[in-house]
């Protein structure tokens, strides 16, 4: 069953088009990484799914219904962003509200987790550090056990150990209570092990929606002598290129056969898989050189 169906989804603000005809289907019970540069439209997409925004054109369906102003759909959606609670709210009150709002909310486990993270429930939001706020929001988001849970930058302000614990918590809870989880984050390498699918958007458009294994196999780095690699570049789709004298590093879409790979290795070309993060970065590169080019000019 598809939890999310987007058909030609367009969202325009007064002076900006944030989403430009997105078509996407997300199945139930999977962890999806929503990847894109700043301003690519990730938050607008999630806010549209959360019923905050109304599509300008096209259709957004969640559980087969339009989410905007639809309490049945909204009761089954959790959207977590960094500006969710008021500074004067106490954590205990927010936990009570969450328990009232979500039928599946596990308050007992939420309290245990807050105790584990040393977050006092009597405290007000304004008394918490950046990382503690994020942890609290994550506890609320995960313990709500909503069939569609959306986490917008869930690791914002978390230190390395808390990021690791968040990943463990998410995986364990997901295993016990499978649901569709959409994670938008810039820390792709850290969350790579969590994601089952990747949705890459750039400038409001869908670049691809693939299984994580396909993205991990999507592209290769070839490094070696310029003469050999220029010939390869003519036959394959190049997504990045970096030269250092006679040495060239190419990033190409991986359509190479086993025979071609063997021949390249014999010619002294170093071959390595392109990381998911590099695939996403290279496919959404602005096409106007890097920041070093700006300095050089």
């Amino acid at each position: 069953m598809n939890v999310v169906i987007l058909q030609d989804l367009v969202k325009r603000y007064r002076d900006k088009t944030a989403l430009r005809g997105i078509n996407l289907e997300l199945q139930e019970n999977c962890i999806v990484g929503l990847i894109g540069r700043n301003g690519a439209g990730k938050t607008t997409l999630m806010r549209t799914l959360a019923g905050y925004l109304k599509p300008t054109e096209g259709t957004a369906l969640v559980f087969g219904e339009k989410p905007f102003d639809n309490i049945h759909v909204l009761s089954n959606i959790m959207y977590m962003d960094d500006d969710r609670f008021r500074d004067s709210d106490t954590l205990r009150d927010l936990l009570d509200r969450a328990a009232l709002s979500y039928s599946r909310f596990d308050k007992t486990l939420a309290l245990k987790l807050l105790e584990y993270f040393n977050i006092p429930v009597k405290a007000r939001i304004k008394k918490l550090s950046r990382g503690m706020r994020t942890l609290f929001s994550l506890v609320i988001a995960l313990m709500s056990r909503c069939p569609l849970t959306m986490l917008d930058e869930p690791t914002l302000g978390l230190d390395a150990s808390h990021r690791k614990e968040f990943a463990s918590l998410l995986l364990k809870d997901y295993a016990n209570h499978p649901r569709t989880i959409i994670i938008s984050s810039h820390l792709i390498s850290e969350l790579e092990n969590l994601m089952e699918q990747v949705v890459l958007i750039d400038n409001g458009k869908l670049v691809f929606h693939k299984a994580i294994e396909d993205v991990q196999r999507y592209a290769l780095y070839l490094a070696g002598h310029r003469k050999v690699l220029e010939e390869v570049a003519g036959r394959h789709q190049v997504i990045c290129r970096e030269s250092m004298g006679e040495r060239l590093v190419l990033g190409i879409v991986n359509h190479l056969t086993a025979e071609e790979l063997r021949q390249l290795e014999m010619q002294g070309i170093e071959i390595s898989a392109m990381s998911v993060q590099d695939v996403c970065v290279n496919l959404t590169a602005p096409g106007k050189g890097g920041v070093l080019d700006v300095i050089a000019k």
Binding site: Y52, D69, N70, I71, L74, S75, R84, F85, R86, Y102
Partner: peptide, 15 residues
């Protein structure tokens, strides 16, 4: 800002 905070938990506009 207050309206935004109220939408942190499920609510529709009629409610």
């Amino acid at each position: 800002s207050e309206l935004k905070k109220k939408f942190s938990f499920p609510v529709d506009r009629d409610l």
